[in-house]
């Protein structure tokens, strides 16, 4: 079988990249400490949502959170990171949630 098959590409489209900037602020699911990160690719490999992109073997660039609004907040990336460079940050709408639970219970009356 072709060995290159499973190698990661590290790019997402420009449209996606533009959206990211905005989204990363709103959802900021994880923070990567630039000083601690050793650019090892593990977080890219482990994220179950395919959100973290890092060019394999590139020792200068930081991993990118390509799809911040698709984060499960599972912390697998944090738990696998060999240098504790990752922290999961919950956004405002999660930690201080103001949703009326009744709005989740349907519009069908008795």
């Amino acid at each position: 079988m072709d060995d290159t098959k499973n190698h990661a590409s590290h790019t997402c489209s420009p449209a996606v990249a533009a959206r990211n900037e905005e989204q990363a602020l709103a959802f900021n699911p994880i923070r990567i400490d630039e000083q601690k990160c050793v650019r090892c690719d593990l977080c890219d490999w482990i994220c179950p949502g395919d959100l973290i992109y890092h060019e394999e073997g590139n020792k200068t660039k930081l991993p990118v959170i390509a799809y911040p609004d698709e984060c499960w907040y599972c912390g697998l990336c944090q738990s696998i990171c060999p240098t504790d460079a990752i922290e999961v940050i919950f956004p405002e709408q999660m930690v201080h949630n103001r949703t009326d639970v009744l709005s989740l219970l349907g519009k069908v009356g008795a």
Binding site: P48, G49, D69, Y73, Q93
Partner: peptide
């Protein structure tokens, strides 16, 4: 498949993928 409190579709109890 439905809304939740945070309004984030991928913030789900079970595996959103």
């Amino acid at each position: 498949i439905s809304r939740n409190a945070s309004g984030l579709a991928f913030d789900s109890w079970h595996f959103p993928y």
